[in-house]
Amino acid sequence: MKTLTKNLVRTATVLLVLVLTACGSAKKTSDDLITDASQEKAMIEREHPMMAEYFNSAEGYAIFPNVGKGAYIIGGASGNGVVYDNGNLIGYADLKQVDIGLQLGGKAFVEVLFFETEEALQRFKDGSYEVSANASGVILDKGFSEDLEFQDGVAIVTVPKGGAMAGISVGGQRFEYTPIQ
């Protein structure tokens, strides 16, 4: 039993390292990232027209157009994004997620963080920003018509792109912000 546990932990650790290095946006230029984010924003507004109001009325938002997640008990996700303040590009951000639970598979998705207030946006820009495991997010899917719930001035929206993943897990996300020089 001890050998099985040791092998399972070793396999999960190797998988996590591979996921964190391979997931998310491939090495792209900042122009590619901005283009991807713009295209995903347009898709969200086209397929979910009520979201246009959130993009227009939020103090700011961060959009991660290509987040990749993989898991085998221990999971990880990674992606790069762009940050806007009142519709103006102000910087870039990296997303990292680690979670644990009964989970298996891989998926790709778009993630958007809407900042309701200047204070919420400033907390994000101040450095390492974390979203706890108990933060709730909305998954945009066909027929979505609910209002977003802001917690501490932040609402999280994800849009599935592809893949298959099953399971239940607990974890959190960490973001690093880099202003435009």
Rank of each mutant, 00 (worst) to 15 (best):
D85W: 08
S57G: 09
G76F: 12
K69A: 11
Y61K: 01
M51R: 02
I73D: 10
V82E: 00
P49N: 02
E53N: 15
G70V: 13
M51E: 02
F55E: 01
I74L: 14
N56G: 12
N56H: 14
A58L: 05
E53A: 15
F55A: 00
I74F: 13
I44W: 11
G76T: 07
A71R: 10
G60F: 00
H48Y: 15
A58V: 01
I44R: 10
G70E: 10
P65F: 04
V83N: 07
Y72V: 13
A77E: 10
V83K: 07
S78Q: 13
E45N: 05
M51S: 04
N86F: 06
V67F: 11
N86Y: 08
V67R: 11
A62E: 02
E45G: 00
S57V: 09
V83A: 08
V82L: 01
N56E: 15
I44M: 14
I74C: 07
K69C: 08
V82T: 06
N86W: 03
V67I: 15
E53C: 09
A58P: 07
G60L: 03
A52N: 02
I73L: 15
G79T: 02
G75V: 03
F64P: 07
I73T: 14
P65I: 06
M50F: 10
M50H: 11
Y54N: 09
E53S: 15
G76S: 12
K69V: 10
V67N: 12
S57H: 12
M51G: 05
P65K: 04
G60E: 00
G79F: 06
S78E: 11
M50R: 13
K69N: 09
G75Y: 02
S57D: 14
P49S: 01
G68C: 06
S78G: 14
G75T: 03
N86M: 08
A62C: 10
